[in-house]
Design a protein around this nucleic acid. Structure first.
Lengths: 253, 253
DNA sequence: CCGACTTTGTGCAAGCGTTCACAAGCGGTA
DNA sequence: TACCGCTTGTGAACGCTTGCACAAAGTCGG
């Protein structure tokens, strides 16, 4: 209630640029999978800019990003037609359009909750601020941590989530707590008005429809890898009867 | 040569259990998306075991895992028919079958490369060993770190990847290095025989076909969330012309 | 033993996302 | 200006995933 986020700002933005309406329409239609890839393209393109590359073809960019070139072109077509046939894409133009679609023209302040090992690492991680995601607040339930600076930012007590998030205009909450605490922390973030959550805790969070959750689950990732190890071992066991693996490449020399 | 992982093992394993061939066939056919969900089900089920729950219906389990119940049943059907109509699934039976399919009956030793902030957090993360993924080796390029114990394990120099990984039968490599070093580290892991890699570095790794890579990319996750923030702001801006956003919650105060 | 009720397992159709293939468009060249 | 070669942008086909809906199969009470 207190921290109702936003009232005048976004509204004024509407009539500012005549192309905005079109951008909005496109953004609505972009498949989730394509959004994830756009972020990857953006990173590759940023590297290109640093190398002084000014133009790039879909073939080059797609192989650098590890995808099919047709897929790349289709992904880019979701955000508009900014290539030149016979030539390729202007790197800087592409960068700025992807940034616009991904909403990177705004700053997105981040709050990290749970200052354990992972929370420390996140608070100190340089990749966030450099890409427009400044870490604006840290929270922990341990009173001894309150006020202690981590990565240059003093830790707040978790009870102050609502006020601090409002003050610092936090738009993304990162949950790095133990699993038992994650749902409660999530609820607090949501009621503090945070609508986007990145969850590192190994639990399935229950949130209202208007909140977006992405999860990073190490255990799941490891188990998927484990599955592939097992599948491979089984295949090898099934197709060879003794000694060497299926394609001559066994586990180790 | 020295520590050939399961040379005899995997091979002899074949005829051991008559059901193995069937398990192998099923495993081959499970869609990747379903594998990821199976890992989630497994975690929920483990929690159920701890609570003393012995039986669970697809409806209960699916809502706890945040998926559709039909999808859950289909996922479980990939690994076999282990439910009882009219009753549900026996929790322990399900756990053991999912564990078998995911290959969790073997130990999967993990090597972490890059002992910075994230590497420290990973080395100290309790979730790995408890789930059958013991951290068996740590590597860094900094000679000053060599021999220093982190999370109880002494750090090795990166030049020793091949020998140490062989000795300790590492099957999963975790890359937590800066992006510039990631590809080189990856190449070393691959030539050391590691076939599964979990990559935290923000780069697209190039690997041979027989190597499985999963990536955890914080920047991409943040940018996807950013996209949703922007989309929401746009929708709000598009649907209201003055004053309050679509559901009363706009960007900033 | 039977019938009512519950829940699984799955055929089928709809929806997405990916891939192919090619027309359209642009720069360069004579 | 007209042609040529190259690369984009996209319609259409394909395949994977999801969700529905229901028959099959079991339990439980009488």
């Amino acid at each position: 209630m207190a921290a109702q986020r936003g009232e005048g700002d976004a509204v004024v933005a509407t009539p500012r640029n005549p192309a905005d309406a079109e951008v909005r329409e496109r953004a609505r239609a972009i498949p989730e999978a394509a959004v994830a890839r756009l972020a990857v393209y953006l990173r590759v393109l940023s590297g290109m800019v640093d190398q002084g590359v000014t133009t790039i073809s879909s073939e080059e960019l797609s192989s650098a990003a590890g995808v099919n070139s047709a897929k790349l072109r289709k992904d880019l077509s979701y955000i508009g037609s900014y290539g030149t046939r016979g030539v390729g894409y202007d790197v800087e133009v592409l960068v700025s359009h992807i940034e616009r679609i991904l909403g990177l023209t705004r700053k997105h302040s981040v709050a990290v909750v749970g200052i354990g090992n992972l929370g420390h690492a996140l608070a100190n991680y340089g990749g966030f601020p450099s890409r427009g995601f400044p870490v604006a607040a840290l929270f922990d339930i341990d009173p001894d941590l309150t006020g202690v600076p981590v990565g240059g930012i003093p830790v707040n007590h978790i009870d102050d989530i609502a006020t601090v998030c409002a003050e610092r205009e936090v738009s993304i909450g990162v949950i790095a707590t133990p699993p038992q605490a994650a749902q409660a922390v999530c609820d607090r973030l949501v009621s503090a008005g945070v609508q986007c959550i990145l969850n590192f805790a190994p639990v399935v969070l229950q949130v209202p429809d208007n909140v977006e959750v992405r999860k990073v689950d190490l255990a799941v990732e490891m188990q998927i890898l484990s599955f592939h190890v097992a599948r491979r071992a089984d295949e090898a066991a099934g197709e060879v009867v003794n000694g060497v693996g299926v394609d001559g490449v066994v586990i180790r020399p």
